[in-house]
Design a protein around this nucleic acid. Structure first.
Lengths: 229, 229
DNA sequence: TAGATTGTTAATCGATTAACAATC
DNA sequence: TAGATTGTTAATCGATTAACAATC
């Protein structure tokens, strides 16, 4: 199950998509699939699916393909979602709030234990069963429940200081929703960035690139309207 | 400014980070930088920075480096953020709500024009100056303000149908926050996925990988606590 | 001028794809 | 059995890095 060599980030980023697709199949009651089918659904090549999986082991059978439930189980193990994880939310603004309310976290063995903020009006409240504490109390609060992952959603200016504080309190991983490049690589803390603006900018590039290669936006939109009606 | 050949997604995904870094420099009043400095801040090689930029043009001077303001301007143009964009939010749940409230959208020429939902209790309300309409009214509402980008944050089950509706109404780009692989490639609509779960899973992989390669989590955490105190 | 740093070409490295023997 | 599909090796393709002449 554990790979012998280092796996490229590309592969790691594709694994969750495989898992999501398999779960969809499983919910539909589909019992078997193949690299070709997975690839088709996810817009990639069958070869790549097999190559990716083979980095971790052999989960299929020649002539048959993959058993959906088994492969789900294997990929879950590879990713590590079979292990329960404790999450704390740092910064209960819009996004922190959204993540607390929404999210099928629990479904995947993630448990949101506590939330932290600096604003007095929100400290002491309870959102969706999660208590909000003062950030000052962090070490005290997490004393008995070691946190695996901190979701960081604080204003950019304070991100770095808080990240350092988390590191000093033994937090091994930060899920970083701020615009700050944390640059904590010297420290052995794992950082995963989620940057809305970067994503929106990339989308904008493709949008404008597409528009400039056609004659103009209006024309294109009108053409589409006509085509579909 | 417009590239002659197709640019790899890797490059496109790095451009916003360059821009963000330059803005930070600019805010500090720094006037000049170099590929080496950019690379240092962003954990990559100077060679890569120069290679990336050279796909679009020559923005630096030998022996000097880059003028911060100029390069900012150039990259903004490449990405296309100099053009104003109209955004509509589809699905005003936690994330939709968060994006409406938060976000320095306006700072980057994005204008959130309208929001849409199906729940009667939210239709007709006004969030942060943005009116919430029934999704039924979509074509009518956007009649006079063509939408460039729809932020899609609806339940997974209905994502595909709504995406198709958007396409049929001439929306050229979807910023997809749902768990659904839209698979609309046949249609010429641009889709950019933002998937929290995928991101959390990737983080989890690195976390568990790190833990399994050390002896155990507790030991590692304790070691860190001791080290920093 | 001397030092610094670009833009670009060539070399290296890594990731994706193709192909196919093994076998269910 | 015949058809299907795996896991893996080799071939291709692309992306990153190194090197350096040009020059500010």
């Amino acid at each position: 199950m554990k790979p012998t060599r280092v796996i490229s980030p590309n592969v790691i980023n594709r694994l969750p998509r495989y898992l999501r697709y398999l779960q969809k199949l499983d919910e539909k009651g589909v019992e078997r699939t193949s690299s070709a089918k997975i690839a088709e659904a996810l817009n990639q090549t069958a070869s790549q699916v097999r190559q990716d999986l083979s980095a971790f082991g052999s989960y299929g059978s020649t002539g048959y393909g993959y058993h959906v439930k088994d492969l789900m189980e294997e990929i879950s193990q590879i990713i590590g979602v079979h292990v329960p994880h404790n999450i704390a939310v740092i910064g209960v603004g819009g996004i922190g709030h959204a993540l607390l309310e929404h999210m099928e976290f629990e479904k995947y063995n993630y448990h949101v234990c506590a939330a932290f903020d600096v604003r007095p009006e929100i400290i002491g409240t309870n959102i969706n069963g999660v208590q909000v504490y003062s950030i000052e109390e962090f070490s005290k609060v997490i004393m008995d429940t070691p946190i695996d992952i901190c979701m960081l959603a604080v204003p950019t200016g304070v991100a770095k200081d808080i990240a350092l504080m988390l590191y000093q309190n033994g937090v091994p991983a930060i899920w970083n929703f701020t615009n700050e490049e944390l640059k904590l690589d010297a420290c052995d803390i794992i950082v995963q960035n989620v940057n809305f603006l970067d994503s929106l900018f990339a989308l904008t590039y493709y949008l404008e690139e597409g528009i400039s290669s056609s004659r103009n936006r209006r024309e294109k939109e009108n053409a589409r309207r006509l085509y579909v009606s």
